Amino acid sequence: MGFSPDFVTEHRRVLPGNDFITWLTDRAARATPLYALSKSSEAAAMTVFFRLASASWVLVAAWILFVILAYLLVGSRRIPFGASYVKNISGVPVLDTRFAFRADQGAAALQALGEVGRRHHAYFQIADLGFVLVYVVALPGALFALFGNAIPAMVPVLGALADLVEDFGILLALHKFPAPARSALAAAGAAGVVKHICFWPSLIAVVAGVGFVLIRRFFHA
């Protein structure tokens, strides 16, 4: 289902500010395959989850944890389960931070990590499971609060599911090393692509949406 520029222009005159953004988001969402999914009984349960996740106290707690865990996992070189720590001691970045990798590339990276690097890589993947549980609340809750629509909120949920597949695939490959685990690494590499495609646009949408709300309130104060 599409809509013409004239149709949009006409509604822009009628609907002010956030009402127009909500309307435009809803119209765009109806054109996506996720729209049919959003009308299912499963989606009704997801909507209840999104409403709970968008509660103010839940959002504040989730985003505080999000920032702390993101720093510990990526920013700190002294935390033994951090990606920077693994790269610092082995010279090899963790597989989780790569946009995509093939099974042979993943196997070569695990070999290059060395024994200590692989052990701390496993620590990172376990800690990342906790991060997934945090952002599957923080991102959907923020998107639902901003747009009032379940469709945008479903995107980071899909990314979180892919992230779990990636985490368990890498953990399985680390557990089986030095035995080859090409199927696990191939699944992890493919899931990682889906994760990045869903996670980063969702995060950008939240930052941009919050920025828009703050700017609008500043100029209408």
Rank of each mutant, 00 (worst) to 15 (best):
G2I: 07
T9W: 01
H11Y: 00
R12L: 01
V14P: 01
N18I: 11
I21D: 08
L24I: 01
T25Y: 06
D26C: 06
R30S: 07
A31L: 04
Y35G: 08
S38H: 04
S40P: 03
S41N: 08
S41H: 07
A43T: 02
A45G: 07
T47I: 13
F49N: 01
R51T: 05
L52A: 12
A53R: 11
S54Y: 13
S54P: 01
S56K: 14
W63P: 02
I64P: 01
F66N: 10
F66T: 05
V67G: 10
I68L: 06
L69E: 13
L69Y: 00
A70T: 08
Y71F: 11
L72S: 08
L72H: 00
G75R: 01
R77Q: 15
R78H: 14
I79H: 07
P80E: 14
P80Q: 14
F81T: 10
G82Y: 00
A83D: 12
S84F: 09
Y85W: 06
K87S: 15
K87H: 14
P93H: 08
P93A: 11
T97Y: 05
R98A: 15
F99P: 14
F101S: 12
D104Y: 13
D104A: 14
Q105E: 15
A107W: 13
A109K: 06
A109V: 09
L113D: 06
G114M: 06
G117W: 00
R118F: 00
H120L: 11
Q125F: 11
D128H: 15
L133S: 04
Y135N: 03
V136H: 02
A138W: 00
L139W: 00
F144N: 01
L146F: 06
F147N: 00
G148A: 02
N149Y: 09
N149G: 12
I151Q: 06
A153C: 11
M154I: 07
V155S: 03
L158E: 03
L161G: 10
L161W: 15
L161E: 03
D167N: 15
F168W: 14
L171S: 02
L172S: 14
A173M: 11
H175F: 14
P178T: 04
P180K: 08
R182K: 08
R182I: 04
A186F: 00
V193Y: 04
V194T: 02
K195P: 02
W200D: 10
P201I: 04
L203K: 09
L203Y: 12
V207S: 10
V207H: 09
A208D: 04
A208C: 09
V210T: 04
G211L: 07
G211Q: 05
F212Y: 15
R217P: 11
R217E: 14
F219P: 05
F219M: 08
A221P: 10
